[in-house]
Design a protein around this nucleic acid. Structure first.
Lengths: 203, 203
DNA sequence: AAGGTAGTTGACTGACTAGTAAACTATGGC
DNA sequence: GCCATAGTTTACTAGTCAGTCAACTACCTT
């Protein structure tokens, strides 16, 4: 067998997929192992519990997405464009996932956080941490937009929290209604929420 | 034994409480029965499955809340006041629940819908239906506010969907962060989102 | 007062749950 | 080539899960 095993990574990927698609409670360790092509003994060689796996899988999932975030929210891009590009990116991602698994899946962090926030503090805290990191991108884009006079948002942090709420709420609605069209207006809704002058369609 | 049994109602109440506080997946039929002071045989006398109980419990829960909604959203109240009163009512309710069980619980419909929307269509549809009913109250208040020139919202339905997203997102955030203060600014945030003139603090 | 019925009870099933333990194997460092 | 060790495998436990079933009880109608 190869010296460096990728079973740990496969297990985390399988877990994220299954939890996102279904839920934490309905995702069994057996199912994760089967999807990852691993045996249970290997699972408990790498993780001491299902809960610990979830925490590590969340972190790994975020790290995978971080590069894309840094790209989209690059300071070299006009601040409102950053937000617009991000929401369009999310819309595309949700549409793709819907095509692949037949259901709109929403935000894995938010769904998981709501499900077990009151039951498993370790997972809840991890979700909280990741959502905070996400909000930071919004916050600095809003602050820049305010500084450039594009919007009026003297309290960038509060505005960012509003935007996160609107964003997460939209994703939840889309999952519940299983309707990706709920996310079509995400970018324009966000700009409307921020009180930006309506963008004329690019071109 | 009394001719008319209230076991069915007790079971639905217990189920809603447990599912709201924890989650659907982690709430066992045994736990519901114990909390309701009923035996499992009685459970399956009234409900054919755990899923069916959830659907009926959701409906009963909504019916319990409906009278309050009709009161708050009475057409005799100025439209923006209706919304403000509603969000203050929610804030109080969340604060009360937090005091009683030590955790911010968010929206039971949204949490449940996100958790099992992809797995149990019957429950998912029921949640969807209830959230739609809720949105209708927002929609007509927004339409009235627009007609009175209090806000600019030519598409009341779209604005109501935005408001629902913001509202549900805020509740989810509060649950995940276990912080009821996230909901303190709900009413003012909602009015800001609607582009209403800032209300001066009532006396 | 008889009998049908709505509701109640406790014991049961079989499948599934997270997690364990010990034997095994391949590999990289020496 | 040898060996410690990281990783793998299989078989297992003990508890919990949703759901079943047949016997039972108290009431309402007649």
């Amino acid at each position: 067998m190869p010296r460096t095993s990728d079973v740990e990574e496969r297990l985390m990927n399988a877990a994220m997929d299954l939890i996102w698609e279904n839920s934490y409670g309905s995702t069994s360790v057996d199912a994760i192992c089967e999807k990852a092509g691993a045996k249970k003994g290997s699972f408990y060689h790498f993780f001491e519990s299902k809960s610990e796996l979830a925490v590590k899988a969340l972190e790994a999932d975020w790290q995978r997405k971080k590069a894309k975030m840094d790209d989209i929210f690059s300071a070299s891009v006009p601040p409102l464009d950053r937000l617009q590009h991000y929401f369009e990116h999310v819309y595309k991602g949700q549409t793709k996932a819907h095509g692949e698994c037949g259901a709109v899946l929403g935000c894995p962090y938010c769904s998981l956080g709501c499900e077990i926030g009151t039951q498993d503090r370790a997972i809840g805290d991890q979700v909280h941490k990741i959502l905070d990191r996400n909000a930071k991108y919004f916050e600095s884009a809003i602050r820049d937009a305010h500084a450039q006079g594009l919007i009026k948002a003297p309290d960038a942090k509060a505005k960012a929290q509003m935007l996160v709420a609107y964003f997460q709420g939209s994703l939840s609605q889309a999952r519940i209604e299983n309707d990706v069209n709920r996310l079509r207006g995400l970018a324009s809704g966000a700009l409307e929420l921020l009180g930006a002058q309506p963008q004329r369609a690019a071109k």
